[in-house]
């Protein structure tokens, strides 16, 4: 930690990033997978109705991408604020 202001900036950047990710996380599962499932089911991708696909497949793929995206972005934030390990 270089200084208090830099530490709190780092923390704010982290919180901003994770709030953004949580919004996507909630949209693919709760909104696409449950709340709007009937509307999305009007759209077909192959044999999948889109809402059904998000609930049983798409949300899970998105979760995986979100975690790796978070890990990658945090890695750059760590270096930018000089709080990385080693």
């Amino acid at each position: 930690m270089t200084s208090d202001t830099s530490a709190s900036e780092y923390w704010r950047a982290n919180v901003r990033l994770l709030v953004g990710i949580l919004i996507v996380w909630a949209i693919v599962s709760y909104v696409f997978g449950i709340l709007l499932v009937d509307q999305l089911n009007a759209i077909h991708i192959g044999g999948y109705k889109l809402g059904f696909w998000f609930a049983q497949q798409g949300s899970i793929y998105t979760f995986v991408i979100l975690i790796f995206f978070y890990a990658w972005r945090m890695g750059s934030l760590d270096r930018k604020f000089d709080v990385h390990e080693d």
């Binding site: 930690m1 530490a7 780092y10 923390w11 982290n14 760590d78 000089d82 709080v83 990385h84 390990e85 080693d86």
Partner: peptide, 8 residues
């Protein structure tokens, strides 16, 4: 604990 540095 909020910063990674020093975990080693």
């Amino acid at each position: 604990i909020r910063v990674p540095k020093g975990a080693g």
